[in-house]
Each structure stands twice: as C-alpha cells, then as structure tokens.
Design a protein around this nucleic acid. Sequence first.
RNA 1: GGCGGUGUAGCUCAGCUGGUUAGAGCGGCGGAAUCAUAAUCCGUAGGUCCGGGGUUCGAGUCCCUGCGCCGCUACCA
Length: 513
Amino acid sequence: MDRKTFYLTTPIYYVNDVPHIGHSYTTIAADTLARYKRMRGCDVFFLTGTDEHGQKIEKAAKINNENPIELADRMVERFQNLWKVLDISNDGFIRTTENRHVKQVQSAFAKMYESGDIYLGEYEGWYCVPCESFWTSMQLSSNNCPECERSVEKIREKNYFFRLSKYQDLLIEYFEKHPDFIKPESRRNELHRRIVGGIDDISVSRAAVEWGVHVPMDDEHTIYVWVDALFNYITALELNDSAKLKKYWPANVHIIGKEILWFHGVIWPAMLMSLGEEVPYQVFAHGWWTLEGKKISKSLGNAIDPIEITETYGVDTYRYFLLREVPFGLDGNFSYEAMVNRINCDLGNDLGNLLHRVLTMIEKYCEGLVPEHEGLLSAEGKELVERSEKLNEEVDSAMSNLQFSKALESIWDYIGLVNKYVEISKPWVLAKELSEKNKLNEVLYNLAESIRIISSFILPFMPNVAEEMRKQLGLSLEEEPVENDFTWGGMSPGTKVCKGSPIFPKFEHPAIN
RNA sequence: GGCGGUGUAGCUCAGCUGGUUAGAGCGGCGGAAUCAUAAUCCGUAGGUCCGGGGUUCGAGUCCCUGCGCCGCUACCA
C-alpha cells in the first residue's frame, strides 16, 4: 500500500547572514509539521538548505579575503549545526552551489529560453553608484536613491527577461480556483490584487555578477539569484523526470517568511507553469518577530543567536514558545519575560506538575505499577476518553491549517481537564479506604493513560520532552510513534513507571532593566 | 500617492454571515485542597467594544466620517 506523501520546505537560507531567531522559527515550524505528518503515517519529505550565490556573497567574501565558496562552507556549517541543536528532522539539505542544482537550473533556464518565455532584452533603470543598487523609477524618492538620498544615474544593460506578464491571467485563474494557495488569507488578497493590477516581465540575469549560475547560452551572464534559489524545491528532488520528483511534487507547502511571498506566490508558480510543472498546493507566509518590542535588524545589532537562548532555556521550551506564543502567520514579540512565563506556567505548572503528581501517586499507592481495574468507566473517566477523541480531531484540523498555537491550546485545554480530574477524583482520599481500591485503580489508570496521550500530541512540538515523559511513564522508546498513539487505551496495566526529577525546572524572571 | 488591514478588560488577544446579561489566557484579589515543582482546583475583574453620525425592531458585528496604528507597493526568516 502506498502511503500518502507530504512534501514540505523551508526557504533556503542566504549564507550572507548568521542564523537568527527568524531562521529558527521557520525551520522549527516546518519540523513540527513534518514530525506530525510522519506520526499520521505520511511519507514525508522535509527539505531545507542554503542559498549561496549572488553579489552580496561575492562582496562579503572579497572583504574577508576568501573565495565565495569558502565563506559559504563556513556559514553552511553554522546553519547545519543549529538544525542539529534544535532537533530538526529534515530529510534533505540542498546547497545552490551543488553541481546537481546548478545543472538542473541551467537546463530549466534553457528550456524556458527555447519556449520563448525567456528572451534577451534591455533593462533600463536607475543605478545608485555608492549603494550599488538598481531602482525602478517608482521606487525613487524625489528622483534620488531611496536608501541614501544621493543622485542616481540612468543605466541600460542587456538582460535576459522572463515573460511574467504572459502568466498574469493564468495566475489570477489559479488564485481564484485555489483559495488556499496562499496563506494567511490577508496575504493572498494582497498578492491577488497586485497581480490584477498588472505585472511586468522580470529581469532574470545579471551581467555584473560573477558568483552565480551561468546562463547556459550566454556565459557573460549569471542567473538572477532568486530564480536560482527558487528552483531548489525541485532540483532537490531531481527535476529531470526522476521517480522522486513524481513521488513528491507538487509540494504540499512551502513555509516562508512574509517578506519573500512575491517570489513564492507569483514568480515561482509562473516559472513552473512555463515549464509545464505543477504548482505547489500551498505557500504559507508567517510573520516576523520583534525582540522586546523592537524590530530585529543588523543596524540595531540586536539579533540573538538561537543557540544562546537554548543554552539557557532549553531547546524544547524554545520550540514550544515560538509556536505557542503567536498564531502562525501573524507577527509576534519575543521577550524573556514572556518566555519564562510560558515555561513556568504552561510547561512547569500545568504539564510538568501533572506528570509529577500522578507518578508520585502511582508510586505511593500502587507500588509504581500502572494499575488494572475492573468494571465500567465512571462518568468522569468517560469524559476523559471522549475529550481525548475530540482533542484528536481538533489537533488534526489545526495542524492541517498550520495553526500550531491553536493545536497547542487544545492540548492545554486537555491538560487542564486532566488536572481537574485529579481534583474531582481525589485519589489521596480514595487511597485511605481499602474499599475504594478499585475506584482508585481506575483513576490512576486513567491519569497515566491521559498523560501518555498528551505526550503523543506534544511529540512533534517537543520531541525530547515527549521522550522523557514516555520514559517516566515506563513506555518503550524503541517503537516509532504512530497514529495509534493518539487514541485511548495504549497504556498496559502493570507498566512500571519511573518518576524522575521535574521535567520543567522553574526559571527566575529576568531582571527588568 | 495608490491598494488593503486594524483599533474590544491592566497586558496579549477571540468574537463567522447583525439578535438574549460582551468572552479566553496571563496578571490582581478571595477561597478550597494537600498527590505535586507553593504546583492544582473554585470564585471574582463590572470594560463609553477609538470619537461622531447613519441604517435597523435590534450593531462590537453593516454604511459614512474623523483620529490613531499597521501592511503591500519587486533586498532581507
């Protein structure tokens, strides 16, 4: 039987920048979705990688007195190391400097040239010499460079162009037939209006840039980095008719930041249409993080290395915070205050304490063995079971829409219900009466089983925490997590639990400056 | 400038096609309980739903307008 495939990607990260919170956010979201889909039985292919060409890299390397590829090699290591630290389970990693990629990009470019969708034309624009930037007349601020306010000069350059305008109607049609193509909806509407407003052909080659993929029919030019970069999503699968491409393409979702939506939502589908390839099912553009209320930028120098955060606060807690604090798609604010609050309250008080109190009772009242009980479930016990089924539906629906925070909210509602169940059932009272032994056993079994289910739902978000919970519950860590883990009844009576120290130690709130 | 969004409790936000006393989480306050990382559970917050005008039997929810904030307008998660 063929399993359903699920192909998801992050952008390939530009190696001119050190990895920061934004990169980690996209990748953690993608990883969580990938892990979730694997548990649901999908054949997942999760791709990330690095974008290594272009003028910025060329210049940065020159300043460092090294070859561009040396710079890239160094930076790639930093990204790969971060993914390792954050427990990213990517199935593929692609670098745009790899030979397999370069060759396929050239062949796609040649194909579009042969079909007439790429043509040699003349680029006309405004050039700011000190900034080394090109601007359209619309971008100019009172006829000067919008960045430095100095005067600009008109330049003409032979360039290859992609006939984007030709795809206007097809794109509009695609947007209208696939309302979920771009998420969130507000972004979709923005793009849609802009396409309706008219799109021009785009320059897809640069004569002035040497560090890039050379235009196959004209060695004087390199291919515009964005064109080069976008193709990674299919060159990683082997574009030229391989079984892998057929198996996974079109991608189920490209997860990206909102600033690169134009490329993914318009240019990329148009080029795929030109090549006769299918368009991805969805492009999901998430929001931006501010740091303590301020925009994160190089000029402010306030970027934080995710590795630093995780060294202090832990990897799983960081993953949890990013996906819980802000609905995916909206902007959010990262603050240590909020992070500590989430760790202490959601994780420590609600979840960590629940695990700890239940295991203590199983050890105290049942010699550390998950008890067996006779007879039917009590009304409260039934509610736990029913709500776990509802939770299963809620989480699946939220995850299908990449609503990570919503999925976590549902899981935490359930955790709240289980804590309530402890209060209502009062196992410490039942334990005092020998005649209540069967009732006590039922309660403790239900609690252990509820926590097992919770650990399954949490696994895609916090893989290490889930593993630790399972270990303390006495479950085998050998077996791969599967869909069955989400449904009631997986806990075998007689399982020996193994309580450890609290899984979420409390943090002091950071001093307020 | 053009196009679009948004303004709801101290804070962060839910409130779909207009319909009974406007909701959640966190914080604050009061109580219960003792299995537990002083964790948990229960109760409580009386907020001109930005201002003004209008449509309607009825508007936080629709329309107009004023003010504030934000996004897109082809570098950057």
